[in-house]
Design a protein around this nucleic acid. Sequence first.
DNA 1: GTCTATACAACGATAGAC
DNA 2: GTCTATCGTTGTATAGAC
Lengths: 220, 220
Amino acid sequence: MTPAQQSTRDKLIDAAMDLFAYQGYGPTGLSEIARKADVQQGSLYHFFPTKEELLSAVLERRKVLLWPEVLQPIWDSVDDPIERIFKLLDQYRQMLQMTEFSHGCPIGNLAIELTESHPNSRRLIAENFTNWLKAIEQCFHEASRRLPESADAKRLAIFVLTTMEGAVMLARTYRDFRAYDAAVASLREYIDALIEMETNWNASKTPSSVRSSSSKKRRA
Amino acid sequence: MTPAQQSTRDKLIDAAMDLFAYQGYGPTGLSEIARKADVQQGSLYHFFPTKEELLSAVLERRKVLLWPEVLQPIWDSVDDPIERIFKLLDQYRQMLQMTEFSHGCPIGNLAIELTESHPNSRRLIAENFTNWLKAIEQCFHEASRRLPESADAKRLAIFVLTTMEGAVMLARTYRDFRAYDAAVASLREYIDALIEMETNWNASKTPSSVRSSSSKKRRA
DNA sequence: GTCTATACAACGATAGAC
DNA sequence: GTCTATCGTTGTATAGAC
């Protein structure tokens, strides 16, 4: 849908989404949003009585866009669930590169800026994280054959998210990718080690010595 | 030194340091800082011509305080270099708990808020990260006997920092410690695996079969 | 639903007396 | 070095015509 066909409301949400991601919620003025959306400032208050309600609409939209705009293109181009995760991490890297480190993680930025001062938005930010985590958790579930039984898909997904958010923070601060690449390399090494553990375990198994599943949890 | 003995300049820096950490740089007004420091607003401009120069002084102070206020108490109470790292991570957890998630990482918060809009401060924020990383890197160096030769102390230190920053972000967003503890547990598992690798390697060595150090890099 | 004009508060910064 | 008063701007939000 081209901008010309968008409703005024959607134009406002899109403009606000960009500006909040680029310069944060507080520093972005409502007049700036209206200007970017090519909408008069009076109309803004017709749709969004307060600035924070516009923020809520932005965060709801981000939840909707996670699959079609972020995940699906990657899921379509990569089949292996583990590689999907690292392709996603590479996408954030590309975003940093294309924007010359001016854009970080839109949700992470708002998380730090608003968790304390805006409790309602905090909940929506948490929902955005949760959906992201669910997608990664699903990847680990799909790769569970290759992972030790003790591997916890949910816990691994959290580790991927903390690594990404921390890596984006350091990349933007240093304005280079050394820390980002180092963090992702360590994460890769960790997951490779888990896969190798399971590989070795399977290789050591013989058809005659099948163990119970409980005894398989050798690294809890 | 009690507040009464502090110079006006130091009182202003202390007040600003607290407020910037708690509510960010932008949302903190100069009048608020002066009030908290018990100093007249006119005096503020005598010491700091602009708000950003006050910020620079705060960031310089944080660099100075890293050792005596953050690291030294931990280094004094824990000898093992690896346990120092996890004690440090536990300290951030305690800080979150004591402040009911209202305080995050003071540097990480400012990093996200200011990297793009305040290039001068960005450099000082990077220096704060670098000093933190150096301390952790030193821990890994001191534990190098227990780690595989392929383990890169600098890279591991970065991984600790990204984990911490991401974990703090998620803890504050969810207002609970599940994600924080999950991330730290994964990091612990990763480092334990490195130590175990080296332990197994040493156990497999016999006095008669000493290898060259180059062949020891079996997991680069 | 759209637009103009404006109210009201808070901000960083400044001027100038002492 | 300290203090009071204030400038000029910007912010969110509103009022009311069309």
